[in-house]
Deep mutational scan, measured.
Amino acid sequence: LRLEVKLGQGCFGEVWMGTWNGTTRVAIKTLKPGTMSPEAFLQEAQVMKKLRHEKLVQLYAVVSEEPIYIVTEYMSKGSLLDFLKGETGKYLRLPQLVDMAAQIASGMAYVERMNYVHRDLRAANILVGENLVCKVADFGLARLIEDNEYTARQGAKFPIKWTAPEAALYGRFTIKSDVWSFGILLTELTTKGRVPYPGMVNREVLDQVERGYRMPCPPECPESLHDLMCQCWRKEPEERPTFEYLQAFL
């Protein structure tokens, strides 16, 4: 395994491009020591290896001592969030954005069929390849993070704006909380990567959403798509659509 080009840095580690087995181009995620327990990670990795779908980033291998390494397929255009905010983002029109959403829903419909939960679905965790191919990455890892700023769910590192209220408040993460996050991801797509709930801080978002506030229809977004977002944001988790439905609708 060779680490060649550093692609990015996040709160919990770095991402590199490299070569595996001398020939395969891969992405390598390294986790800061202390982010998660190697034992817990190894268990999760076994499950992650079983998830194989064309719209999920394929896991190739893991190094399960500290520092933990995760070796996955390489996606040339990086994260969907950076892609939307970058040069190419300007030229993306609604049909392409909807197609990308459908690809993500397709990957998540598979996660749904496998009775698995992602827990951290957002544009930053979707990767883009050639020809606007989108794949879901980092599934299941969020559960293992041991950082206090994260586990408190009120901490600075927790993605509260993407998280369903029952998950943020009571830790009830299910495929239905993933559906909520998918609704937020749809706003990221239609606004080219704007942060959700602009002008609001995490605490406010939690309070307002509890009181029934939902983001309005983004500019140039059809009402039918906003309606779909609002279905994803129904207060009762069981009233939210399935990913199978979302995939078919898109």
Rank of each mutant, 00 (worst) to 15 (best):
L84I: 10
A61F: 14
N202P: 06
L7Y: 09
K157D: 01
T190C: 13
L144Q: 15
K6L: 13
A109L: 15
R52Y: 09
K135G: 03
F182M: 09
V71F: 01
Q43F: 14
F12T: 01
T19R: 12
V63Y: 09
I175P: 15
T174P: 05
F249A: 07
E39P: 07
K161R: 06
E39A: 12
R214Y: 09
T187A: 08
G89V: 10
E236G: 11
R240H: 01
D120H: 04
L1T: 13
E66R: 15
D178H: 01
L246E: 04
K50A: 12
G140Q: 01
Q96S: 11
E112M: 15
C232R: 03
R119D: 00
G78I: 03
T72N: 03
G78M: 06
E223V: 11
L1V: 15
D120N: 02
E220A: 11
E87Q: 11
E66V: 14
M100C: 10
Y170R: 10
S76N: 10
K235N: 12
N202E: 01
P196L: 06
G18S: 15
Q208Y: 14
Y150T: 03
T24N: 13
L81S: 15
P165H: 08
P38F: 11
P241C: 07
A45M: 02
I70C: 04
M108G: 14
Y69C: 06
V111M: 15
R194A: 10
L246P: 02
V71P: 01
A105N: 06
V136K: 00
L31D: 10
A137K: 01
A156Q: 06
I28G: 12
C217S: 10
P159S: 03
W16M: 15
W16I: 15
G212Y: 06
E149S: 07
T88A: 13
I184Y: 09
S106A: 09
K55T: 13
L80S: 11
A164M: 01
T151H: 14
K157A: 07
T35R: 15
L97S: 05
A156I: 04
V98R: 14
I126M: 08
E54G: 11
D178Y: 02
P216C: 08
E87H: 13
Y74N: 13
R172I: 10
Q9T: 05
L80I: 14
Q154M: 09
Y110A: 07
K6D: 13
C230P: 03
K77Q: 10
E244A: 07
V5P: 15
V63A: 10
V201F: 09
R25F: 11
V128F: 04
E87P: 13
L185P: 01
R214E: 04
P237M: 13
W162A: 03
W180Y: 09
T191W: 05
I126C: 11
L225I: 06
V15K: 00
S76D: 13
D82H: 10
T30R: 11
Y60V: 14
L92G: 05
G86E: 10
V133Q: 13
H118Y: 03
C232T: 10
T24R: 14
F12E: 00
S64Y: 10
N21P: 14
E146I: 10
E65G: 07
M100P: 03
P95Q: 07
V47Y: 04
E4R: 15
R143P: 00
I175C: 15
Y110W: 11
E239L: 12
G155S: 05
T174H: 13
A123G: 10
V117P: 01
P95H: 06
C217M: 08
